[in-house]
């Protein structure tokens, strides 16, 4: 008697799971297919599902509409800010994991608090300051501002990772006469590589996705790809195919990284409160 009931449950469950998958994936399917449509096909009403695909939109956005340079800007900014965050963040994380000192918890809380601060709070003062310093519309301004979210993420994830490395290793090395820095550099950092990699991937994703700082601080030369996509919406004749081609180019790299770090994305977004 029990078996058929269970089988029916499983079928129901499988259907539900399929619905959930479709719910998540369908917009991406539509994005990619629209990017392969010519403007004439894209503006058919009702929308068509079967058509002859063309790569013309990609060709046009990459080489005519300067999405290519914007993608390069995005890569430069995301890679540099990630590198800088790892460089500055890993020693700090090590110190938080290993040393005892006054004000440690306050410092820790301050790092986490950055997760909550809206970029719109910082964007205008930074806009004014960067104008004064001649940093407006440079990669450097964006790289530095992105540290406000990449550095906390690196520090948080790496602190956790360093804590999981047995202290006995440090103590043995200390007895051998190694300096604290040497212990960090040659013993703990290599062991903490999985955490460093995860935090780097998350930093890259969050920097790559950022719009507000980029939109306000880098209007032209350092314009990143998301800010570029926004400008397509200005004007009367909305080029659907081109917008979706640009969107696809922006989203595909992040999705690949997100799948690579899928287990840790939620941990990153919650700053580790949820394991």
């Amino acid at each position: 008697m029990a078996a058929p009931v269970q089988r029916r449950n499983l079928v129901g469950e499988a259907v539900l799971l399929t619905v959930i998958c479709l719910f998540c994936v369908f917009p991406f399917y539509w994005m990619v297919t629209t990017s392969l449509k010519t403007q004439v096909v894209a503006l058919q009403s009702p929308p068509v599902w079967v058509f002859t695909p063309t790569l013309a939109n990609y060709w046009e956005v990459l080489f005519v509409d300067k999405v290519g340079p914007a993608l390069v800007n995005s890569i430069i900014v995301a890679v540099c800010t990630t590198g800088l965050a790892v460089l500055l963040g890993t020693p700090a994380a090590y110190a938080l994991a290993r040393f005892e000192f006054r004000g440690k918890t306050d410092l820790w809380f301050w790092f986490i608090t950055n997760r909550f601060v809206s970029p719109v709070v910082l964007a205008f003062p930074v806009f004014l300051i960067s104008r004064e310093l001649g940093l407006r519309d440079t990669h450097l301004a964006l790289i530095l501002m992105y540290l406000t979210f990449t550095l906390p993420i690196v520090i948080w994830i790496c602190t956790d990772q360093f804590r999981s490395i047995p202290r006995e290793l440090d103590e043995a090395a200390l007895l051998e006469g190694a300096s604290q820095f040497r212990i960090f550099r040659s013993i703990c950092l290599p062991l903490a590589m999985p955490g460093v990699a995860v935090s780097a991937i998350l930093s890259f994703i969050f920097s790559w996705n950022e719009l507000l700082f980029a939109y306000i601080l880098a209007p032209k030369n350092a314009k990143t790809a998301p800010a570029m996509a926004v400008t397509f919406m200005e004007g009367y004749d909305v080029p659907y195919g081109k917008i979706m081609a640009t969107s696809t180019l922006i989203v595909v790299p992040v999705l690949i990284f997100a799948l690579l770090a899928s287990k840790h994305l939620v941990r990153g977004l919650t700053m580790g409160a949820v394991k």
């Binding site: 539509w30 629209t34 996705n209 719009l211 998301p226 919406m233 969107s247």
Partner: peptide, 19 residues
């Protein structure tokens, strides 16, 4: 597949809605 929506560039999510 659940990981995909939350990783997607928020600006692109808005553009997708437009389309």
């Amino acid at each position: 597949s659940l990981v995909l929506p939350m990783a997607t560039t928020y600006a692109v999510v808005g553009l997708l809605a437009q389309v």
